[in-house]
Design a binder for these strands. Structure first.
Lengths: 125, 125
DNA sequence: GCCTATAGATGTATATTGTATCTATCCGGT
DNA sequence: ACCGGATAGATACAATATACATCTATAGGC
């Protein structure tokens, strides 16, 4: 039964905004997976999980949006530190542009919803 | 090769906002699939396609968000007319609330991006 | 009769996600 | 010295979602 509806984006940014989030976070400075996980969660992608995140980072590396290396940790296991590449910076700029588009569409959609209830109230004298 | 990144949400609302869009459109008045397809496309979900849309409508009907019946058309084949149910109205309200959350997170994220480049420019005297 | 636009539905390959599980390291407690 | 928990990263496989092609039908124009 192919049914995609399930429970929606409740209060959280859909996980598919993970890419722009990661690019933004890395534009703010180098970081490693475990830390990025907490950051993206705090940024709004509550449902982010390690599996997907690490996968994403590797995929981004394959696309040369980021590069990484192992770095020993003073406390705990070694970390893979990620930094944004030139490509990644460009990718971020593009992502941000489409995010702006999405934001505008959302605003329009929400206005449309609001005017809907306004009309409904207005029609009750 | 499992690579999820591909080309992102370029200029369009991700297809997974189809549900709130359809609910909003149906809140504005009854409609049928073919017409809804054009409307959601104009609303920003450029990549919406008939297959997914019709399936989506049937799924929403199974969830009792909408109800439908066949209606003969004056010109062309019969149409399945959809209307929003009480359930659907509630679903729309909830969807809209999470859309507002998403919008706010997006705004925060974009501000953060902007302040990033501001800092970069500011550091060049 | 044949072609096109309209209208709806289904089948299926592929892509993406979700969930569980696995390895390893360091630190603190006992 | 040994154990358990926090940190860190990675992988396998199932479940879902998406894209694309295809199929049925009807009405109207030519």
């Amino acid at each position: 039964m192919s049914n995609q509806m399930s429970s929606d984006t409740n209060g959280t940014l859909p996980r598919h905004y993970l890419k722009p989030c990661l690019l933004l976070l890395l534009a703010e400075g180098p970081s490693h997976g475990y830390e990025l996980l907490e950051h993206v969660r705090r940024m709004g992608i509550k449902g982010a999980e390690p599996g997907g995140l690490y996968r994403y980072l590797r995929a981004m590396e394959k696309e040369e949006m980021v590069s990484s290396w192992w770095e020993p940790s003073q406390a705990g296991p070694a970390r893979r530190t990620y930094v944004l590449t030139e490509e990644g910076r460009k990718g971020l700029n593009e992502s941000v542009q489409s995010l702006r588009d999405v934001r505008e569409i959302l605003v329009t959609l929400l206005d449309r919803y609001d005017s809907l209830s306004t009309k409904a109230t207005a029609s009750r004298p």
